[in-house]
Design a protein around this nucleic acid. Structure first.
Length: 423
RNA sequence: GGAGAAAUGGCAGAGUGGUCGAAUGCGGCAGUCUUGAAAACUGUUGAGGGUCACACCUCCGGGGGUUCGAAUCCCUCUUUCUCCGCCA
């Protein structure tokens, strides 16, 4: 959520930047600023009315104390009108505030200057790529065939137990996934992140805090009996740890990492490109969440990119990094880098990590602030990224490491899996 | 799930209808003293809105109500604690 004050001071710059998203903010901003002006005037009227009744109440109290009940009762007569007046002003304030908020909720974050203009994912900027795409023999298979051949993942069994998109990992497949989780967490904690284990169900307030609600309600599984939501990403519970907090600058940056299962309804996305592990309703992910100062957040973003790069380098997977264009940029993000690993057998890139700086967009909604050295209070910048989304890493490993003898385990993982080959 | 008790500032803890945004203690900050520190003493110290700055308004778990006036009374929700039941 953008800040009205920011909008009013940087109106033209924001309008221009939002155009990169193909978002026309001009009329909206006009309306918004007008509403805000009205809000302030109404607030003033309300305050004055309340001040007057407070004053009268005090007088009544004093008069009763002096035993002048008649005079007190005379003043009481006057309070009725004031009460009615403040009631109406209160209603007006309420509707103005919801109108303002509803309007603010529809405005996406202002893209950073590095964000290229563009409409679709084809306009994303490739800024880095590494790793040769292995020449696989004609016998090479897509990961869902490999998973079946070596009995690593059973998609049908998941159908039976739950439904499509809930695979069962078995044997070395399960072990490989567990090894990856531990490896990622170790890498992250070595880099200074604190590991956390968080709830997989969140309440409504948390959903609103990180922006999944109200817009993406249909993407989350809703446990109606208790009005809780299954998390679509660890970002939700981890960022909400700090909802409403006033932090000290000395506590920043806060760097947390957590492993969770993630649940997404993915309504309406079916077809060949969601085969196998490409898109699931339940999947595992290790997430990075950072809270930092505005001065340091872009350095932090670069650090996160380097960190994820390091992991992919160690896994020796062919990957590329994209800077998302305005049209592809997520609603809440100011600047996002996507990491994609090449799926050799499918001959396509798979997104395995997305690293974003949200600047104050989330912090404003969540009211996460910090007190700087000079006691000034301001919103923190929040950033997050995946390290990494497990199923697609597994898809990448299975496909890129397949040989005629079996699937070779990336060297760095062997201490975690305890085996070198899947045969 | 049943019965009871409670929720107040960073923490502890007073406050049961008006002068309470809230005693007191601890903690924090600033100062005195000291070569420096500790101790002691003095002062200061919640958040949000609003204003050039004041004024002023709102907030005592959330929401609603009674009243001229609510931290204080009533309703409701949530959470915590104790006891019982159930359970990994």
């Amino acid at each position: 959520m953008l800040d009205v004050k920011q909008i009013s001071t940087h109106k033209d710059a924001f309008i221009k930047a939002l155009k990169k998203r193909n978002f026309n903010a001009e009329d909206l901003f006009e309306k918004l600023l007008k509403l805000d002006e009205e809000r302030r005037q109404t607030q003033k009227q309300l305050d004055d009315t309340l001040a007057e009744s407070n004053q009268l109440s005090k007088e009544i109290g004093a008069l009763f104390k002096q035993g002048k009940a008649d005079e007190a009762n005379a003043i009481k007569e006057k309070t009725g009108a004031l009460k009615e007046n403040s009631k109406q002003l209160n209603h007006k304030m309420e509707s103005l505030l919801t109108e303002l908020q509803d309007l603010l909720y529809t405005i996406p974050n202002v893209p950073h200057e590095l964000v290229p203009a563009g409409q679709t994912e084809d306009d994303n900027q490739e800024i880095y790529s590494k790793g040769d795409i292995p020449k696989l023999s004609h016998k090479s298979l897509p990961h869902w065939e490999l998973a079946k051949k070596y009995d690593l993942i059973d998609f049908e069994l998941g159908n039976k137990i739950t439904g499509a998109g809930f695979p069962v990992f078995k044997g070395k497949g399960a072990k490989l996934q567990r090894a990856l989780i531990t490896y990622f967490l170790d890498k992250n904690t070595d880099a200074g992140y604190q590991e956390v284990q968080v709830p997989l169900l969140v309440n409504e307030a948390s959903g609103y805090g990180t922006g999944q609600l109200p817009d993406k309600e249909g993407q989350m599984y809703h446990v109606t009996g208790d009005n809780l939501y299954l998390i679509p990403t660890a970002e939700v519970p981890i960022t909400n740890i700090f909802r409403g907090n006033m932090l000290n600058e000395s506590e920043l940056p806060i760097q947390l990492t957590g492993y969770t299962a993630c649940f997404r309804r993915e309504a309406g996305s079916y077809g060949a490109h969601v085969r196998g592990l490409n898109r699931l309703h339940q999947f595992d992910k290790v997430e990075l969440v950072n809270l930092t100062t505005p001065e340091q957040s872009y350095q932090m973003l670069d650090d996160m990119v380097e960190h994820v790069k390091d992991i992919l380098d160690e896994l020796k997977l062919p990957y590329r990094i994209l800077r998302l264009c305005g049209g592809d940029l997520g609603f809440t993000s100011a600047l996002t880098y996507d990491f994609e690993v090449f799926s050799t057998a499918q001959d396509r890139w798979l997104e395995i990590s997305s690293v974003s700086n949200f600047e104050t967009f989330q912090a404003n909604r969540l009211k996460i602030r910090y007190k700087s050295a000079n006691q000034k209070k301001q919103l923190v910048h929040t950033l997050n990224g995946s390290s990494l989304a497990l199923p697609r890493v597994i898809a990448g490993i299975l496909e890129n490491y397949q040989t005629d003898e079996g699937i070779k385990i990336p060297e760095v993982l062997v201490p975690y899996t305890g085996f070198e080959w899947i045969k």
